[in-house]
Each structure stands twice: as structure tokens, then as C-alpha cells.
Write a protein that binds this DNA or RNA. Sequence first.
DNA 1: CTGTTAGCGCGTTCAA
DNA 2: TTGAACGCGCTAACAG
Lengths: 334, 334
Amino acid sequence: MSAVTLKMIAAELSLSVATVSKALADSYEISQATKNTVSEAAQRLGYVANPYASSLRKRRSKTIAVVLPEIADSFFAQAINGIETITQAFGYHVLIYLSHESFLREQAIMQYFKSGRVDGILMSVSEETSDTSHIKDVIDDDIPVVFFDRVCEDLPTAQIVTNDFESSFNATHHLLSKSCHKIAFIANSGSLSINRNRVLGYQKALQSVGNSNELIVNCGKNDEENYQLLTSLFNQEERPDGVILSVEKLTPLVYQVCNDLGVTIPTQVKVLTFTNLGIASFMNPALTTVNQPAFEMGQAAAKALFKKLSQNIEVLDPELVILPSKLICRESTR
Amino acid sequence: MSAVTLKMIAAELSLSVATVSKALADSYEISQATKNTVSEAAQRLGYVANPYASSLRKRRSKTIAVVLPEIADSFFAQAINGIETITQAFGYHVLIYLSHESFLREQAIMQYFKSGRVDGILMSVSEETSDTSHIKDVIDDDIPVVFFDRVCEDLPTAQIVTNDFESSFNATHHLLSKSCHKIAFIANSGSLSINRNRVLGYQKALQSVGNSNELIVNCGKNDEENYQLLTSLFNQEERPDGVILSVEKLTPLVYQVCNDLGVTIPTQVKVLTFTNLGIASFMNPALTTVNQPAFEMGQAAAKALFKKLSQNIEVLDPELVILPSKLICRESTR
DNA sequence: CTGTTAGCGCGTTCAA
DNA sequence: TTGAACGCGCTAACAG
């Protein structure tokens, strides 16, 4: 049988509904004796409060939303794990939404939140997002939003990012030190702030040594086209001898293209990719990676959100958390 | 400003709340004229129904729960993507819970669902789960549950699995045909049904050719211990020349151990792993994989759940969906 | 310390 | 075709 209500417990114990409610909430105005009786009965009958009735009345759902572009590579998978460790500690529930990199879908999702469905939102914006009014609307409704990884720098709220500029700068210098002199930078979206900072770091590094072989390739969503794009990149008269991948997802494609063209990694081309502690890092000793602290970013974002939730009345100053990435060199030793 | 309610729309149009409610629900008893007026006003004011009030009244939350052990490798990440495509088409919301392979946590999570929080549950059980009464309780409360991947074979509900026995049988034969004669099977949990079936397929294949070098290694959660376990495996007087990994997650560890011992893959040891279409598959040409259709399993599970939800009164016969895995040989060609 | 009353916002009666 | 009244289950205010 289902649906044990306060009313049933009250009837069972000949108490009023209000008393039972207060007893279970451990209110100070209830005697220890009845508290014991009530919690015993609740336990025995398997009472679980109806969250919808409770949320309606309290105007708090104990639920947050996580809005992601997708869960394709392991970055967001790890991030969810990090988020969950925090939400779970706070007794919060997590609704998950995927925008599939679509602005329209992201708009529709934000619409859900204009009715108190969630107490707060953790979000990484889609590639297509440049207009941010749908997000601003939600913030204006006093629903706290925390961005992580794919942030909106122009919105006045908490942002959790990694040191993209610096790590890209270091990554480029790393390849330069391995005597690469023509390094290509491969991205998949020009508008995202992370990508922008990584490109800047790459450019700055090249400039710092007077290397003018700047080569930026913007991949799209279509893997066929990307294949062509990369094939012509490696088919140039003077082939790149180093490649930086802004997204982990493109790694297999690069390997495939090189394989098909008979270009060996890392002898002829050194590959360096932004990634996280996923499997890719371990599998191929010829790959150097900049590890993104995905789990930690999830945790940091969730913590920032709960900080806002616990003082949700006053308007907070925007805060920016920058977590460091880590360059991991796993040069082939075989 | 926040919280546009039916009441506000009613006031705006000098109508009653009931009329507005019916109009938005497209009830037959409302004139087309007022329906138009109402939906225009709702649009203009940015009305979104309060889901908690609505759920409380209708006793349906339009929300399902996805209960997973973790999102460590890409299998569950892909599965979530598949699930989301379906839930999104049905206008449902998705709550996500991670048991972290803990039975106690899984019990606590199932407890949440005894109060109408969700209309249905998609679930992969934790490694530790042998007692299934906490799941049975929820089913008895008429909340439909669909298992996928890590199923409970003894519970009478829908189960989505892959052909584990058969694909493990084929995988073993594949290695045998590559002239392996001492093949180790590496798992990380003995009690799960998938693992059981894979072990059986492995054993059956060995028997079918009269090979008596059965070698089953059960790894645990501790990576240090696993490292030791695998090191002693490869340090045996007669080293295995083939390895089947029941879980993708252990792949990097095997590569690491082999690397540290100076054992080359695939020359000295051929590695075959159960996986999905994650990055691992593409990255290392020396790896043969049995690809799990994770995305499709997520979709199948969600579809099965919605089938149940649409006819939730009658008790359904248990049904079993078996999706085929695919053996992908990616032998080194370089 | 306990009970009574009054909503939270919505959907479903039943009258008008 | 519309509106008034009631209640989903719970919590907050106020009496007793």
C-alpha cells in the first residue's frame, strides 16, 4: 500500500495533524514524549512526506537543476559526480536537463524554472548561446544561478572556470619546447569563453617566441566535415608538427585522420589535448593532456550555489572561482 | 518579478481562476474566444504553472528518477543521453541519483520514492545489492520500475540487457582464434547478473575447445589492490597471452600494469574489453572491444517505462529486452 | 505543550 | 459557457 499521510499518523495516535507535523520537524514546542511516539509511528507505517505538498507550502523545493549541453565526453559526467556529492550532503534533489547545444532547447528549459520548480541552477551554456536574456530572466526571478566551465562572463553571478588562458599558454610552450614549430589549434566553437581564452593563450605563447605560424581550425558538429577539415590540415605542403585540441571529443578523430593519412603520432605530429581524468588520458602514452578538474568544478559550483541559497535574500556580488588545470606529459617511452 | 499565478491572469482578464485553468487545459467547456484571450495573456505575462501545486492535485509529477551506481565510465553517461531523448519528447523531467555502489545509499534513495515524488524509475543496481526488498517495496506502491544493464533478474518487471553470455562467448572465441591459449577474465564484482553471464560465456567458450586454462580475477574498488592483483597476474610463471575485461573502467589499469612490467600490447598480451562507443575505443588500435549499446539501452529503458506509465493500472507481465552488443576488432595495423 | 484555522496554487466537482 | 466552492497534503499563525 501507498501514501501514508500525516492524517493517518494523527488518526493512529489520536493527535492533530499539526502536532504530528511539528513533532516530525522536531519543533521546540512539542514534548519529547510525543516526539518519540510520533517518530516511532512514522517509522512503523513507513511515512515519507509528500514533497509536492511540502514544497507548495514552504515555497522551497529542495531541488536544484543542472543544465548541460550534453554528456558526451567524460567532463560533464565527472562534473555530475562532483555535484552529486554536495547536493546529497545537503539533502537536495537534482533535476538534469540537456540542451544538446541548442539555444532554443536551452530557452525552453529555462522556462521550466520560472515557477519555483527548483531552488537554484547549475549551468554550462550551449555553444549557440550568445543572447542570455532567458538566463537573466531566471536570475531576475531570484533563482540563483551558478555557471561552471561554459560560463556567461557578462552575467553578474558566480562563475567556476579553469585557468584556460594560462594552461593553453603553457601547453603551447610545452609543444614549442619539444621543438614543434608549426602548431595548429583545433577548436569546435568560436563563441565560448573557454575557447576564446584558450585561443588567446595559444596566440600569446606563439607571439612570445616570435613564431608566426598561427593556425586555428574551427570544427563544427558534423563529423564528416570535421574529417575533411582535419584531412586538409594534415595534407598541407608544410604539415603541422604539433596540435592542440581544445576539446577532448575531437581526439579520436585526429587519431583517425592521422592513421588514415599514415602520419605517425607522436613522431611526426605531437598531440596535446584538453581533457579530464577520463580514460583517454591513460590509454595512449603518446598523448599529452591538460587535465580539467571536472569533479572539483562540479563540487565548487554546487558549493557556490548552496552558499547563495543559504543567504538568498541579499544580492551577492559576483564571484569568480578559478581552478587550476594540470599539464600531464605522458610522452611515449616505448 | 516572479510567480505569475492563475489568479493574476484571472484578475487581469476579470475571469475566474477556474475558467482560466480550464482554458489553458483546452477544456471543451470553454469558448474558443476566451481560450484565445487567456492563452494570449498567459503568454504575455510569462505564466508557467506551478508544478508542485499541479502535482499535488493531479497526483502525477511528470517526473521520473534515474538511479545509477555512478557515472564513472562513459556507459552511464551515454545511457543518460538516451534516456533524456525520450523523457524530453514526453515532456517529463528527470531526477538523478547516484548510489556510489552502496547498498545503504540505494535503500535511502528508494525511500524518497514512497511519496509520489516520481511517476516511475529507471535503475541499474549497485554492486552490493543482493537483498531487493527496498526495490520491491516501491514496485508494490505501484511505481513502475524498469531495470537496465545491472538488472535484478528475480523481480517481475521490465529488464533491458545486452546479450552478455553470447558476446562473452564470442569474445573468448575471438581471442582463441588469435592463437591465445591462456586467457584471463577480469571482473570487478561477482554478484552482478551481467558479470555472471559474461563469466559463463567465457567458461563455455573455453570448454568448447577443451581449454582448461580458466583464470578469473575479481577486482575490487581499491585501485592499489587491483594494481597488485593484476601485477601478480602478469608476473606468473606462464603469463596470460589474452585478457578479457568485463568493465571498461579497468582498461587503463591493465595498460598501466603492462607498461610498468614491460609487457607489450598486443604482441605479448591481447586485450579485449567490454565497452561502449566512448573515446577508449578509438584511441588505441591495439584494443579489441565489445561495444555496449549504451545510448540505445537508455532509450529502450525509457520507452519501456513510458509504456508502463500509459497503462499504469493493470499489472503487466514482466518483459525482457535484449539488445545485441557488437564485437569490434581494431587490431593494430601500424 | 497541543489543537484549530487558514491557506500554498491548482484542478475538479456542481450550480448558475 | 462560466464561476463558486472544495480539497490534494502540508505548514504557519494563533488560540487555548
